[in-house]
Design a protein around this nucleic acid. Structure first.
Length: 488
RNA sequence: GGCCCCAUCGUCUAGUCUGGCCUAGGACACCAGGUUUUCAUCCUGGCAACAGGGGUUCAAAUCCCCUUGGGGUCACCA
């Protein structure tokens, strides 16, 4: 099959909703393959469903692809020599192909109504019999057909599927897959309103755009024979195929909204990093080798090979995505991380002010203190709330630590000691704390615990020294002092 | 149900095409230790899989067949 043509691959989204994770991964694989082969990656918008299309969907899909770092060589906003790249603008081209199909006889009029056929299907279902379109309209004479059309009877154009023909593909992922033409019904290629259907225009456009490799989801595998037949009718070279396995939900079925978020946009909103998402998607159904699970786009490209894509479906593993995100987040520079996390803080109502250099420096200090504790950008506002407002009311063990018998004495002692310190934060908090604990005859922990709770409301969190620095002298002392009367 | 696809730890996977190096490797999650004033990070260790049955072969996770299980698809949606 056409393996020596220049590599041209496409991602063909339908702008009827948000970009699905499966679609995002398909796009990623197409992109990686094109980049690996030095080929062309193009975007074609399949907006033939005028009912469900929306401008907003298209924009969001393009934004999502860009967010992932996938750039396209031809398509919307990029142009190209084989456009238009919107199917809604290719009507003239389709009309020519339709005329040709009718003339050459591989498209024929069928006057059966959708309702009739639906009724037949119903009957078959009730009788538990397998239903397939009965191509009796094929027998309609040209005169009768013309006459009924002239009389204004509504009709669709069906594709005349040949008898006893073997339709096989050598799928890059699955190997040889063969269909018998008897299994393929005379499908509708042009609707009664004159608009062509997906299987028809998809093949038409792939041929016209010289697509060399069709890399798409496995759910399209059964569409392939229909599309191959179009190539054969057209006398165009067939592309080669790679049917990528599905992304499965926790239930083992095709990922759907029932089992969690399915749109890439949902994960963007949750604060996942684009590098992490790219990495994770590239690891679903593909692997570089037996040990590499964190990699750059360049490394993915260098190793990319359609034959290395798995055959079986992969369950979307949130834990793994979460982990990868943490890996990237921890490897980021404090500066970049501060920038990335700022929108999430502002969304939570923090830092909604002009960011002068002092504020930025403080934010970077905060981010540095929390970096080892974060896996998602969106986690910071909740974790660091104590640094933006009141001390959250301690709960559970934290409340207990603050209510300990010696806590008031220890806290006021430590507040006094800190107040006397020359620098802020004190160079060695431990050196200040130790004697106080000893004087009270308790372990260091007995002092540190209530101190943390008094300052942040929590037993966990950054190092004490960082907490004092972030809070500042005044605020730190105030919190240590005000915690005392609360418990006494 | 017809047609098509698939089958290694709970999960993502390496190994399968080109049988022996596999007493099946890595990672996530989980569990247990260690480092750390806390939490987290980090380090060490542990748990855990070739769906079943037949072949072929000196040798099978790897090749063949059957069974079972799972999935996809059966629109004038894409």
């Amino acid at each position: 099959m056409a393996s020596h043509r220049p590599v041209r691959v496409r991602f063909a989204p339908s702008p009827t909703g948000m970009l699905h994770l499966g679609g995002a991964r398909t796009a990623l694989f197409n992109w990686a393959f094109a980049r690996r082969e030095g080929g062309t990656f193009l975007l074609r918008v399949e907006d033939t469903d005028t009912e469900r299309n929306s401008e907003e969907s298209l924009r969001s899909i393009l934004d999502c692809l860009r967010w992932l770092g996938l750039d396209w060589d031809e398509g919307p906003e990029a142009g190209g020599d084989v456009g238009p790249y919107f199917q809604s603008e290719r009507g003239e081209f389709y009309a020519q192909s339709i005329a040709r199909g009718v003339e050459e006889g591989w498209l024929y009029r069928c006057f059966a109504t959708a309702e009739d056929l639906e009724q037949q299907r119903e009957h078959a279902r009730a009788a538990k019999k397998n239903w397939r379109f009965d191509p009796t309209s094929r027998g309609l004479s040209q005169e009768d057909s013309d006459a009924r059309a002239a009389a204004g009877d509504s009709f669709v154009l069906r594709f005349r599927v040949p008898d006893h023909e073997e339709i096989g593909i050598d799928d890059h992922i699955r190997g040889r897959v063969v269909f018998q033409s008897e299994e393929v019904e005379d499908w509708v290629a042009v609707r009664s309103d004159g608009n062509p259907t997906y299987n028809f225009v998809c093949a038409l456009d792939d041929a016209a755009m010289s697509i060399s490799h069709v890399i798409r989801g496995e759910e399209h595998l059964v569409n392939t024979p229909k599309q191959i037949l179009v190539y054969r009718a057209l006398g165009e070279p067939e592309p080669s195929y790679a049917h990528v396995p599905l992304i499965l939900g926790q239930d083992g079925k095709k990922l759907s909204k029932r089992t969690g978020d399915t749109a890439l946009g949902d994960y963007i909103a949750k604060g996942y990093l684009p590098q992490a998402m790219f990495n994770f998607l590239g690891l679903l159904g593909f692997s570089i080798d037996d040990a590499t699970d964190v990699f750059t786009p360049e490394e993915l490209i260098a190793a990319f090979d359609l034959k290395r894509i798995n055959k079986s479906g992969a369950i979307f593993d949130q834990d793994r995505l979460h982990w990868i995100c943490g890996e990237y987040l921890r490897s980021m520079s404090v500066r970049d991380l501060a920038q990335a996390v700022l929108p999430h803080l502002q969304q939570a109502g923090f830092l909604n002010c002009a960011m002068d250099s002092a504020k930025t420096a403080w934010l970077e200090q905060l981010v540095a203190a929390f970096q080892p504790r974060l896996t998602l950008l969106s986690e910071l506002p909740a974790q660091a709330a104590a640094f933006f407002g009141e001390v959250p009311t301690p709960e559970g063990k934290a409340a207990k630590a603050l209510a300990a018998e010696q806590a008031p004495v220890l806290l006021s002692a430590v507040a006094d000691a800190l107040e006397g310190a020359n620098d802020w934060p004190p160079q060695d908090v431990m050196a200040i704390a130790k004697p106080i604990a000893e004087a009270q005859g308790v372990g260091l922990g007995k002092l540190m615990q209530p101190m943390r709770v008094a300052l942040t409301g929590s037993l966990g969190g950054p190092e004490l020294k960082d907490i004092l620095a972030l809070l500042g002298r005044e605020q730190s002392l105030a919190r240590l002092r005000s915690a005392v009367p609360k418990v006494s």
